[in-house]
Design a protein around this nucleic acid. Structure first.
Lengths: 206, 206
DNA sequence: AGATGTGAAGTAATTCACAGCC
DNA sequence: GGCTGTGAATTACTTCACATCT
């Protein structure tokens, strides 16, 4: 269960959301080719991804949605609440906190940070906003190991260094700078400029 | 030059930004291992990516930054301005338009859309905001083939259908729904929920 | 009959490793 | 000597195809 690739984990996360939110009302069973259709993948891909789960489908009836969801949650979620810190409460930070709010019972943004005094002290989608000077204290108190960076580029590396020193092991970055982190820290790059240039290129060539 | 993979195009875009923004003042030459260090890749990877470019480095002195940038722009950019449409002017749309504004001379968001009358008519980072009912007209008039979707999930598919019908061939999507598009339309998924769940998983396991 | 789970095959992406050059 | 460019090797990812099950 520990040899998931990043691709597989990402798709499992997608499958879960599809099963939760994008199934016709009352669907109880689903076949791999149906889930594949929803996810934009092949049925073999879906079955391969689901192999690692603690649940098997039935040849005749496919997968029971409730059981598959339970297995996905078991594979994807932490045993208890995994708190996430969000640093940088500009438009992007506010967007993320808004749509992720309440999405998962065991994965939630529980603290957000900014260095603008006008923002600290208030809440965003019910999440308290602290001044960045409180970073280490809050991360330690909540046992946070996961963070999202939405600060301006020039602030990002310093924040990351502090997060890592405070024990953070996974960082989702929307700062448009490359982050330097020690081995053992997972960094997911959400670089929107790269994404847009890629899209623009394939719009022309594909 | 047409057999770039999405991975390669993404990294070429990253290399360009690194060369532009993250080099010590006055750097004129760079070696593959230095660029690799900045990009978080291997030097072999960098050299392999640069192979397709219309420029070769020198064994003794590496790559001349100016020439490499010119070759990257030639490979990545359209010959003339490539206009991009952005649909959905919530926090996320505003964030994207803000930081991409002015970044590239030949790739720019030139039109944005919302269905909120309070937003249409004004500008965001100097980009005029139209009502979504104007979508087809503006896309046709500007010859837009590239779009970014930042609408709420339930609005996304209908917007995508209209964009594709109007001639759009590349879509960068931050809507958290899977988009259905005909073959020949490139879709880059920017799904932030998947990204966060992936990050959270590897924070625990990696 | 028509699904699943999976070994085997096939593709794609990355890294190795070295000839050739400065 | 230390770099580039690149064929060959390796590793990672996806798909094929089929034995198996209901």
């Amino acid at each position: 269960m520990a040899d998931y690739s990043t691709h597989t984990v990402g798709r499992l996360s997608l499958y879960r959301r599809l099963l939760e939110d994008h199934l016709p009302e009352g669907t109880e069973q689903i076949f791999s080719h149906q889930l594949a259709e929803l996810a934009g993948a092949s049925s073999a891909q879906v079955r391969r991804d689901l192999m690692y789960l603690d649940y098997e489908g039935s040849p005749k009836r496919g997968y029971r949605v409730q059981d598959l969801l339970a297995a996905l949650s078991k594979a994807l979620d932490a045993p208890t609440l995994q708190p996430v810190a969000l640093i940088g409460m500009g438009n992007l930070g506010q967007a993320i906190i808004g749509f992720f709010s309440g999405a998962r019972p065991r994965l939630a943004i529980t603290a957000c940070f900014d260095n603008d005094k006008a923002k600290t002290g208030q809440t965003f989608s019910a999440v308290p906003c602290y001044h960045v000077s409180q970073l280490e204290a809050v991360v330690a108190r909540q046992g946070i190991i996961t963070a999202i960076i939405t600060t301006p580029a020039q602030a990002a590396q310093a924040v990351v260094d502090r997060l890592v020193a405070a024990g953070v092991r996974g960082i989702l970055s929307y700062a448009h700078v490359p982050l330097k982190t020690p081995p053992g820290v997972f960094v997911e790059e959400g670089d929107m400029t790269v994404a847009l240039e890629k899209t623009a290129w394939f719009a022309r060539k594909a």
